[in-house]
Amino acid sequence: MKRERAVAQEVVPEAEFRSYYGRPVIKPPIWHEPHMPTYLYLGGVSGVSSSMAVMARLTGRTRLDRTARVAAAAGAALGAGLLSAELGRPERFLNMFRVFKLTSPMSVGSWILAAHGGLSAAALAGDLTGILPAAGDAALLATAVTGPLTATYTAVLVADTAVPAWHEAYRELPFLFAGSAMAAAGAAGMLGTPPAHAGPARAVAALGAGVETVAGHLMERRLGFLGEPYQVGRAGRLMRAARVLTAGGGLLAVVAGRSRALNAVSGLALTAGSLCTRFGILAAGRASAADPKYTVVPQRRRLDEAS
C-alpha cells in the first residue's frame, strides 16, 4: 500500500508531496461534456459576434451585420439551451434568477447571458422582421456592453474555483477566452458571409487567434508547474490541436482574401480551434483537480515560504 507518493516530473524540479492514497483533495468540475465547453464556445461566439454586429451596423456592413446578429442570437440561445440541459430540467434554469449575487460569477453571468440573449434576440428580430428597426438597433447597441462580457465572464466563472490550473490562471484566462471568442466569432462571420464582405471578420479572427496564442503561451509560462495539466494527457492534446488550428486558421484568415475556399478552411479551423481550446480548458481543469499534487504542492510551498 503506497501512502506517500514522490512525484518526479519534468516541468519543475522534483516535487515531493504526500497525499491520501493519491486521491484528489478537491472535487473536479462535474460539468458535462459537450455541454459545458460548447457553452463556453457559444458564449464566445455570441459575445464577440455582437460586438461585430455593432461595428458592422455602425460602419454600414449589412451582410456582416446580419450574419453577426444571427451568430450572436443563436449562440446565446443555444448556450442557454445547453445550460438547461446541463441542469437536467429546464425549469431549474429559472432558479438562476432568484437572486443576483456579485460573489457568484455564475449568477452575474446568468444575468449577463439573459440580458445578452434577450438583447441579441431583439437585435436579430429587428433586423429580420423590419418591425421597430430602431428598437432592434438600440438593443444591438446595448449588446456592445453585454457582448464582450458574455465572452469573458466565463473566464471568471472557471477561475473562481479551487481548480488549481484555472484559479491560478485568472489573469490570462480572460484574454485567452477573449482571443478564442474573437477567433470563433470571426470564423462565424467568415463562414456566414461572402468573402467579399467578410474582411473585418477575417481581421477579428486573425487578431483573436493572435491574442489567444499569446495569452495561452503567457499563461503556461507563468503557471509553471500548474501549467502542466494544459500540456499533458487529453488536455495537452486538445490544447496543442487548438494551438495549431488557431494559429493556422489565423494565418489563413490573414491571407484568405476573397478566396471562398481559404475563407471556409480558415473559418472551420478557427471554429475547431476554439472548440478544442474550450474542451482542453475543461480537461486541464479536471486533470489538475484530479491529481492531488496540483493542489498540495503549491499550497505546501506557499506555507513553507511563509514560515
Binding site: 459575445g47 464577440v48 460586438s51 461585430m52 461595428m55 458592422a56 455602425l58 460602419t59 456592413r61 460569477p105 456592445a144 457582448g147 464582450p148 462580457l149 465572452a151 469573458t152 465572464y153 473566464a155 471568471v156 477561475a159 473562481d160 485568472y170 489573469r171 484566462l173 480572460p174 484574454f175 477566452f177 477573449a178 471568442a181 474573437m182 470571426g186 473585418p200 481581421a203 477579428v204 487578431l207 483573436g208 491574442v211
Partner: peptide, 21 residues
C-alpha cells in the same frame, strides 16, 4: 481581481473588434 482582468479582456476584445472594422 478576476473581474478586473476579465473587464480588461472584455474591453480589449471590444477594442480589437472595433480596430478590425
Amino acid at each position: 481581481a478576476m473581474w478586473g482582468w476579465a473587464g480588461a479582456a472584455a474591453l480589449s476584445a471590444a477594442g480589437a473588434v472595433a480596430l478590425a472594422f
